[in-house]
Write a protein that binds this DNA or RNA. Sequence first.
DNA 1: ACTAAAACTAAGCATTTGCTTAGATATTAT
DNA 2: ATAATATCTAAGCAAATGCTTAGTTTTAGT
Lengths: 187, 187
Amino acid sequence: MARKKQYNEEEVIEKATGLFWRNGYEATTVRMLEKEMGINQFSIYSSFGNKQGVFLESINAYKKRIYDITDKLAKSNNGKAGIKQYFYDFLEFARDEDMNKGCLVTNTVNEIRDDTDPVIMEELMKFANEIKQLFIDNLLQDESKTEEIADGQANYLMNCILGLSVSSKVYDQSQLNSIIEITFLNI
Amino acid sequence: MARKKQYNEEEVIEKATGLFWRNGYEATTVRMLEKEMGINQFSIYSSFGNKQGVFLESINAYKKRIYDITDKLAKSNNGKAGIKQYFYDFLEFARDEDMNKGCLVTNTVNEIRDDTDPVIMEELMKFANEIKQLFIDNLLQDESKTEEIADGQANYLMNCILGLSVSSKVYDQSQLNSIIEITFLNI
DNA sequence: ACTAAAACTAAGCATTTGCTTAGATATTAT
DNA sequence: ATAATATCTAAGCAAATGCTTAGTTTTAGT
C-alpha cells in the first residue's frame, strides 16, 4: 500500500546515541544527527517527533548497552567490591579509542541549568536513581550497615562517579584507577 | 577631548560573572549579557573584544571573589582538615539563596567537548591546577606522605569537588555535608 | 563656540538553530 | 496497470546566535 522505510529505526538510534554521548544534548544539532544517522531531517522528525524524542530513544539504547554491567552489579553479592568492579567496568565501557566519553547520562546531568527540559531531567534522574539503588542494595549486603549509612554512602559514590565522568576526559588511565582505589577506601 | 564611559568595567564584569556562573559559557548569550550588564552590545565589544573576552575577565573576577577561601587554604597548616574546611567554605561560597550554583570553573569544565575553545580550556586548566597544587601542599604537611601519594590523593579530591559542583545542584545541604565527611574519612 | 574623538543607540548582518512543507518517488492492495 | 499512500529529497521558515556598522550624542581641548 505504501513505500517501505529505507532505514532501521534501531540502527539509526544506535548512531544517534554515539553522537549524544560524545557531545551532550544541547551541543548536538539536528544537522549533526542527520549526517550521523544517515537519514534526512524529515525522516528523523517523522520517526521520533523531535530532537528530544531522538534523545529519549538514545537513552533507552544506552541503557541496553550498559545493561551488561548494571546487571552484573544487580546480581553481585560482593558488597562494596561489586560496586568497585562496577566503577572499573564503567570506565572500560566508556573508553573510546584513547579518549573517554564518560557516561551519556552523567554527561547530560552536567548540562543541568534552570531551563533544562523537564522531561529530559526526569528521565536522567530516573536512571541516576536506579544506579543509586543498586549501590544501596550492594552496600546493604554488609549487614552491619544501617539503611541510613548505606544511603549516605550511595550519595558519596554517586558524587564520585559524577566526578569520574568529567575527570575521565582529563586524567589518564592510571590516574583514574588510583582515584577509584582511594574512593573505595572510605566506605 | 572625548566622551567618558558611562559604566565601570569592573562593575559590569561583576554582573557578567554571575550570569556565566549560573548558566555556563555556551548557554550565556550576548543578549543576556547585554541585559545583565546593563550596557549595549557595542560597549561590550568595545570594552572586551568578544564574548570570550568577557568570560576571561569574568574568570578573573571570580578568582578575586574566591580568593578569600583559596587564600585561607594556602595559609592553612592543618593538612587534610584545612582541605576539608575548603570544601565547606566552597559550598557556602557557591550557595545562592536556596540553590547552589556550583563553581564557575568546574561548571565550565563540565562543558568540555572536542571543540571547546582552547584559550578558555587553558585558562580553566590553569585554575584547576592551582587548586590541585594547594591540595598537594596541604597534604604534604603530613610528613609521612610521599609526593606520589599526595598527588594521587589530590587527583581524588579534585574528582570529588568536580562531582560536588554537579551534586550541589541536586542534593540538599545535609546530604552534601555527609558526602564531604565520607570523602575525607581515609586520606 | 568649534572641532575632534570617544561612547552611545539601534538597526542590521551572516550563520546556525529546531522544525516544516512542497513535491517527487517508491511500494503494495486491488 | 492503477490508485492510494507512506517515504523520500531538498528547499525553506522563523527565531536566535555572535558580531558589526551607520549615525547620533556627549565630552574636552582649543
